[in-house]
């Protein structure tokens, strides 16, 4: 990495971003903080409630259950999408027409509006009109994502894998393409087998971009709202009510502003904490020149 000069005037270049983000992030965030420490009887009359809402939320089963489901969801999709994405990247044609063809088709799911992704899978999984649901039923498998918890979970996980594996694959592919051929030749001279080539050449070279992928995928899966909401609406019961779905139910559905605000802040903190860990690892990898 090149040496940077110290110049405090650089602040002026950052100023527009600062103003814009302060407007669209800090002000709303302060509103949330404001709600989280107050109580209301309506009529816009608020009074100080201290940390009451935080205590209430922390002792409430509801948030812990949603958090548990959320961690399970993010864990499962990361565990599927990363090996699968890397595997696909390794099998992609490296150049020529088919390479572009694969890239275009693979990027397609990434640019579909999220509620349409939900709609696609909602239709696809229906037993009466969907290809997937109909086929499974014809095979004699009991599948109904609106009533059966397991089916609902499988549906939203397969949907997320369908939606986002390509992002991991594309990032991994970009990493693979940057490996000079000399590395492979050296490996051939050393008679390294396929696994060793992957373990000691390809994987380390992909590490930098894979960290970006993990960071993006973790953040986005942890904030997921639209797709599962369209497909299952959080049901059956509360089986697929992830954190964001629960939060929107609480804030916009029941208008419990205080608890919802306290919930929001803790939710945000959890994401910050985990992302900070990933980010630190990423910066350290960057420093090592990977």
């Amino acid at each position: 990495m090149q040496q940077k000069t110290t110049n405090h005037k650089a602040w002026f270049l950052v100023l527009p971003v600062l103003v814009l983000v302060a407007f669209s992030a800090v002000i709303p965030l302060m509103t949330v903080v404001n709600y989280s420490v107050q109580d209301t009887f309506g009529n816009n009359q608020f009074f100080w409630a201290g940390l009451e809402w935080f205590q209430e939320m922390l002792s409430d089963e509801r948030m812990w259950n949603a958090l548990q489901r959320q961690l399970m969801f993010s864990g499962i999709i990361l565990a599927i999408e990363f090996p699968l994405g890397i595997f696909v990247a390794l099998n992609m044609p490296k150049s020529g027409f088919w390479s572009s063809f694969c890239l275009v088709v693979m990027s397609l799911p990434l640019l579909i509006p999220w509620n349409v992704v939900g709609t696609i899978w909602q239709i696809f999984g229906r037993v009466d009109i969907g290809l997937l649901g109909h086929t499974l039923e014809a095979l004699g498998i009991d599948y109904n994502y609106t009533q059966d918890t397991i089916s609902a979970w499988i549906t939203i996980i397969v949907m997320d894998v369908w939606h986002w594996t390509s992002l991991v694959a594309l990032l991994a592919f970009a990493g693979l393409k940057s490996i000079p051929d000399a590395y492979y030749q050296a490996a051939r001279i050393d008679q390294a087998n396929r696994w060793k080539v992957f373990r000691f050449i390809e994987l380390p070279k992909m590490m930098g971009v894979l960290m970006i992928a993990i960071l993006l995928r973790f953040m986005d899966s942890f904030m997921i709202y639209t797709e599962p909401f369209v497909v299952t609406g959080g049901g059956p019961g509360n089986a697929t009510t992830l954190l964001s779905i629960d939060l929107v139910k609480m804030a916009l559905g029941q208008f419990d502003l205080g608890p919802a605000a306290a919930f929001s802040l803790m939710y945000f903190l959890v994401i910050l904490l985990i992302s900070w860990v990933f980010y630190t690892v990423m910066v350290n990898l960057d420093k090592k020149g990977m």
Binding site: A25, M223, F268, L272
Partner: peptide, 15 residues
């Protein structure tokens, strides 16, 4: 700045 990329839209919808 990056933390704003991590902020769940659900948190910001009402504000």
């Amino acid at each position: 700045l990056l933390t704003n990329r991590m902020a769940p839209p659900a948190v910001f919808a009402l504000p």
